[in-house]
């Protein structure tokens, strides 16, 4: 009982002093932040800034040099059922002999535990999740026959099937078609309405203001973190992206002139 109340008040994800290195090269240095409840949070930074590493370290998938990760007030290892994870689409071989429904049911494996096979209940839930991402008609489709965007939606449906309270997504918008982008946005909004917290690694600076309540600017260290309106400024972006300051500045000026939100290219 005590733990449930704690879980309700403790931040969905609290990271303090996190450092990660591959071989000797530091990828993350002294990263600390706390995600607020029920928000869509974007993680933005240049290539090699450690965005994916941050996600993997937060989930305990890779070893960390130092620091602490807490999910709803407890170490992430003990809170796995509260976390939904959407890995990068390229991280798996889509020629694997399985269909979309089967992949979505994998989201239930953690709840099923050892040895138990997914049954009718899991199937029904997986179909519901597929329907939520507009993929109900593709349930029995072999996964290699899905387009990139459809594959991404299958991954999202799998995370939905996890029925988590904190969702962590690694570049769900990378290389998807307009229909999928729309489906993902709809889904993120729905998760937010349900009071869930979603952290999304994002590449497209042009859409950050539109999509996310808060934003984390990352380049090995945390450059800025807070409400998008306050933090997503030219100065902060220049600091995060370093050498591309002039380019961004110019883009920003152009964007302000035209008032269009589609000026800034991919970071």
């Amino acid at each position: 009982m005590q733990r449930t109340t704690e879980a309700l008040t403790a931040p969905p994800l609290a990271i303090s002093g996190l450092s990660v290195a591959y071989q000797k090269k530091p990828v993350l240095r002294n990263v600390s932040f706390q995600l607020p409840h029920g928000e869509l949070v974007g993680v933005v930074g240049p290539n090699g800034a450690g965005k994916s590493t941050l996600i993997k370290a937060a989930l305990g998938l890779i070893p960390k040099l130092a620091g602490e990760v807490q999910v709803f007030g407890a170490p992430s290892a003990s809170q796995r059922k509260l976390i939904g994870y959407v890995p990068q689409r390229e991280s798996v071989d889509w020629d694997f002999p399985t269909n979309a429904l089967d992949v979505v049911m994998m989201g239930r494996y953690g709840h099923l535990g050892w040895f138990r096979r997914p049954g009718a209940k899991e199937k029904r839930l997986a179909l519901e999740c597929l329907a939520k991402v507009g993929m109900a008609d593709y349930a029995n489709r072999q996964i290699s026959q899905l387009s990139g965007g459809q594959q991404q939606r299958v991954f999202l449906a799998r995370a939905l099937a996890q029925d988590a309270r904190l969702y962590v997504m690694d570049e769900p918008f990378a290389g998807v078609d307009a229909a999928t982008e729309k489906a993902i946005i709809g889904l993120l909004q729905e998760l937010k309405r349900e009071g869930k917290t979603v952290m999304v690694v994002h590449h497209d600076l042009a859409t950050v203001k539109e999509y996310f309540d808060s934003v984390l600017l990352l380049n090995v260290e945390v450059q800025a973190f807070g409400k998008t309106a306050e933090v997503f400024t030219t100065a902060n972006l220049a600091q995060t992206y370093g050498g591309r300051f002039a380019y961004l500045n110019q883009q920003d000026a152009e964007m302000n002139e035209s008032g269009a939100a589609s000026g800034i290219g991919r970071g």
Binding site: K56, L59, L61, R80, I83, Y85, P87, F96, T98, M106
Partner: peptide, 9 residues
């Protein structure tokens, strides 16, 4: 299929 996801679970 997806060892990373399996570890996450």
């Amino acid at each position: 299929f997806d060892p990373g996801f399996a570890k996450g679970l």
